[in-house]
Simulated assay, not measured.
Amino acid sequence: MADQLTISAEKRTEFGKGAARRIRRADKVPAVLYGHGTPPMHLSLPGHEAMLALRHTNAVLTLDVEGESHMALAKDVQRDPIKRFIEHVDLVVVRAGEKVTVEVGVHVEGEAAAETVVTTDYNTLEVEAPITSIPEWIVVSVEGLEAGTQILAGEVELPSGVTLVTDPEALVVNVSQQLSEEALEAELAEAEAEAGIEQEESDEDEAAEGEDAEGGESEGGESEGDAEGGEDAENKDD
Rank of each mutant, 00 (worst) to 15 (best):
E109T: 14
A113F: 02
V94L: 09
T119M: 07
V127L: 01
R95P: 04
V104Q: 02
I151P: 00
I131N: 00
A112P: 10
E109P: 02
Q78I: 10
I138W: 04
P81V: 08
S141R: 03
A96C: 03
E111Q: 15
R95I: 03
T101Q: 08
I82V: 15
A129P: 11
V93L: 15
G97T: 11
V92D: 12
R79Q: 00
E143D: 14
T149W: 00
E155R: 12
V108R: 04
E98D: 10
V139N: 09
V100S: 05
V102L: 02
A96S: 13
I131Q: 00
I86Q: 06
V92K: 14
I151T: 07
Q150T: 14
A114Y: 03
V139T: 13
G97A: 08
E155I: 09
D90Q: 13
V94E: 09
P81Q: 04
V102H: 02
K83S: 11
I86C: 06
T116H: 08
I151H: 02
E128A: 11
E128L: 07
V118E: 13
A96K: 14
T119S: 14
P135S: 02
V140Y: 05
P130C: 04
V118L: 13
V156D: 06
A147E: 05
G97K: 10
G144A: 14
E143F: 09
F85W: 10
V127H: 01
N123Y: 00
E103L: 03
H88C: 05
W137G: 00
D121I: 07
V127W: 00
L152I: 09
R95K: 12
D90E: 15
E98C: 01
V108E: 03
I134H: 06
L91R: 07
S141M: 01
V104N: 03
N123W: 00
G110A: 08
P135Q: 02
V140N: 10
E136Y: 02
G154H: 14
V92E: 15
R95Q: 11
V93G: 07
V108K: 05
E136A: 09
T120Q: 15
S141Q: 02
A147Q: 02
H107L: 13
Q78C: 08
A147F: 01
G148Y: 05
K99H: 07
G154W: 14
A153L: 10
A153C: 10
S133N: 15
I82L: 15
I131S: 00
V108W: 03
R84P: 06
A112T: 06
V118T: 15
R79V: 01
E115P: 00
D80W: 03
E103T: 01
T116D: 07
V140E: 10
L152H: 14
V77S: 04
V100G: 05
E126T: 13
V139L: 09
T120I: 14
E111F: 15
V142M: 13
V106E: 09
A129M: 09
V118A: 15
G144Y: 14
T101C: 02
E111L: 15
